[in-house]
């Protein structure tokens, strides 16, 4: 029976004695190929890799792991020297964190104003979160506007309001906007019934 290459001595087969392309995968033991055996420049084609399941566990810290959005056309106005919700409880923005370690970024793009007034109006604004019936609030801004011209006019106090918080929960969070009339006038949100957008993003710790 013949053999390839030079005479084998002392049961040692060196590289030169192995014919090119003669080592088959069947000759490799299971799990024999380690990461160290793969060249750093191998550039293994994506088509030869199994589909990678993108899970929260393999995303780096700082990744956005969940986004919820909501559009509303609700107009609201009140006259109360007490904190008053923009939206009814059923219509609030809701997010349920996937981990209690994660933080939540909330942004609302909504026309806030002083109501249809003459004279000076002074209002306070804050975000309210409700978890299992328990409220937490985050005061965001104090707004003052003065309309000295005749007639009633809506004063715009700005559109953007938002906050970043760590709710330490995996229960549903309801998010609402509240205002407080500080000057016996009115507070107004989106008086013309335009489209307003609300977003809550969960950021991995």
């Amino acid at each position: 029976m013949g053999y390839v290459g030079s005479i084998v001595t002392q049961n040692v087969v060196d590289t030169a004695n192995i014919a090119d392309a003669s080592i088959t995968t069947a000759k490799l033991a299971d799990s024999a190929v380690t990461n160290a055996k793969v060249n750093a420049s191998a550039s293994i084609a994506q088509s030869k890799l199994a589909t990678l399941a993108i899970t929260h566990a393999n995303m780096p810290s700082g990744s956005i792991v969940q986004v919820v959005t909501m559009n509303k056309t609700t107009a609201q106005e009140h006259t109360n020297a007490s904190w008053t919700d923009y939206l009814s409880d059923a219509n609030t923005l809701k997010i349920t964190p996937t981990s209690s370690s994660n933080t939540i970024i909330v942004s609302m793009m909504v026309d806030r104003g002083n109501g249809n007034i003459t004279g000076e109006a002074h209002n306070l604004w804050r975000l309210k979160t409700t978890i299992g019936g328990s409220d937490t609030t985050y005061t965001n801004s104090t707004t003052v506007v003065k309309n000295d011209s005749s007639g009633y006019k809506y004063g715009n106090m700005g559109a953007f309001i938002g906050h970043v918080f760590a709710p330490n929960t995996t229960s549903e969070i309801k998010i609402n906007l509240q205002s407080y009339v500080y000057s016996s006038k009115t507070a107004t949100i989106n008086p013309y019934g335009h489209n307003v957008g609300f977003t809550a993003m969960e950021v991995k710790a």
């Binding site: 107009a75 006259t79 008053t84």
Partner: peptide, 9 residues
Amino acid sequence: TKYVIRTDT
């Protein structure tokens, strides 16, 4: 006084 209006129309 001390009222709230919420409306989409």
